[in-house]
């Protein structure tokens, strides 16, 4: 009974499983927990729809922030090549 109550009332947990399920299988028990929850909960149903749309949108985007600048990379490449040359001599 507790499991069922938890299943129905825990939105945070259901959403976490839902987000995980977008990327990989989550196991039968957790999958069922998710399905039962979103059958009853329109908020989480909506959230997971929005989450899926965000996935599509992110795939179209290019991200530079978390990457090194081209200049920095060129500098690193150069240093590596110089060091490798020294190693050969």
């Amino acid at each position: 009974m507790n499991t069922l109550k938890n299943m129905l009332h825990n939105c945070k947990q259901a959403q976490q499983i839902g987000v995980e399920f977008e990327h990989k299988p989550v196991g039968f028990k957790r999958w069922l927990q998710l399905k039962v929850h979103i059958f009853y909960c329109s908020y989480c149903r909506r959230f997971l729809k929005q989450s899926a749309l965000i996935n599509t949108l992110l795939k179209r985007m290019s991200i530079k922030d978390e990457q090194l600048g081209e200049g920095t990379k060129a500098k690193m490449q150069h240093e590596i090549e110089v060091l490798m040359k020294q190693g050969e001599d």
Binding site: H9, N10, C11, K12, Q13, Y43, F47, R60
Partner: peptide, 29 residues
Amino acid sequence: FDDSLYNNGHITGSTWRAGWSSEADANIN
């Protein structure tokens, strides 16, 4: 994080009520 969005795991606050309109959808490019 929980305080603003969940109470004992259950959803709270108006933030979850907002749907996304489909017209906005069409302009996402």
